[in-house]
Design a protein around this nucleic acid. Sequence first.
DNA 1: GTCCAATACATAAGAATCTGATGTATATTT
DNA 2: AAATATACATCAGATTCTTATGTATTGGAC
Lengths: 113, 113
Amino acid sequence: MIYSSELIKGTLKTIILKLLKDNKRMYGYEITQRVKELTQDRIQLTEGALYPSLHALEADGILTTETEYIGKRVRKYYSLSPKGKTVTKEKISEFADFMSTMKFLLDIKTDIA
Amino acid sequence: MIYSSELIKGTLKTIILKLLKDNKRMYGYEITQRVKELTQDRIQLTEGALYPSLHALEADGILTTETEYIGKRVRKYYSLSPKGKTVTKEKISEFADFMSTMKFLLDIKTDIA
DNA sequence: GTCCAATACATAAGAATCTGATGTATATTT
DNA sequence: AAATATACATCAGATTCTTATGTATTGGAC
């Protein structure tokens, strides 16, 4: 199963931040591959969504970057800033809370008929 | 806690369908109130998001409508069509699967450093 | 008996964010 | 030599949400 795209909307930044929390630094392409691998192809981040998100997080002071060259090919590593570490904790905790609310909402039976 | 709007994106239709699955028929305003109540104000659907979604689901043949008058005030009741019942099961099961993937993704530790 | 809040629908401009395509370039595998 | 993988980036168009606006009825407060 590959999830319909609308489901993934709104979770991209949380996913990025969580990966960076566990891995200190990662580059964009690596993030797409890691997510694909960890979810057994269920979540496939597109570059058109990923790169603008990374740029936005950097512009917000949540991520910092270091550019390196592997041979002649450029690689841009992203890391959490101190602010980013705080934001990450908040985001993950908010998401966990949201999931439990949704779980309740989608399991509930209120039919009295 | 009121969830940041981006989290709710993509879940609106699933929520609507689940409520209609359990309640046979509901009208728009009732849906907003029920969700607010069930989530203790954590999820507050806005009318600007809800009505267009209901219209889209109707246009897709997923919902059927009946208009009734309560006094002089109109009420539009929505119900699942046969197709809608199938779609609802799929959506809920997809969402459940997605939640378990996200749970895994956000709990995982892959830091080897 | 008047006014405010709640009920109940709807639309629309603008914002945000994603898809899918396109572009550039290097490195590796076949 | 060619195809695939790595690695970045941008952009038009689509989708979907927010916020505001609009119309109208009903119920409760004072």
